[in-house]
């Protein structure tokens, strides 16, 4: 981050979550986007942060309860009669 952009970089950093979640006002978004157009470091941070969130969500969605764990859960809850889906 170069010195003349420093103040703006700090502002970007604080608003980063709201920016990637698209919860900022149009005015603030525009301000951030004009900064990003001139600041490759902040652009990399934005891009890789979005990618980070995406990767975690993507891999989490693949996790399901394994069959043996489901069976033990149903037995523990005294629901063995309903084990067949």
């Amino acid at each position: 981050m170069n010195e003349q952009n420093k103040a703006s970089c700090d502002v970007i950093l604080r608003s980063l979550s709201d920016y990637v979640d698209k919860t900022l006002s149009a005015e603030l978004c525009q301000m951030i986007e004009s900064h990003l157009a001139e600041c490759p470091d902040c652009q990399v941070v934005v891009d890789t942060l979005q990618r980070t969130v995406y990767l975690y969500h993507r891999t989490a969605a693949e996790i399901t309860v394994p069959d043996d764990v489901r069976q033990r859960l149903f037995r523990r809850l005294d629901l063995s009669d309903f084990l067949k889906k």
């Binding site: 996790i63 399901t64 309860v65 764990v69 489901r70 859960l73 149903f74 809850l77 005294d78 629901l79 009669d81 309903f82 889906k85």
Partner: peptide, 16 residues
């Protein structure tokens, strides 16, 4: 119990 079993199946992935 059948309703509870349905509920467990609907929520267990999230809890796990």
């Amino acid at each position: 119990r059948a309703a509870f079993a349905r509920f467990v199946d609907a929520y267990s992935n999230y809890v796990y």
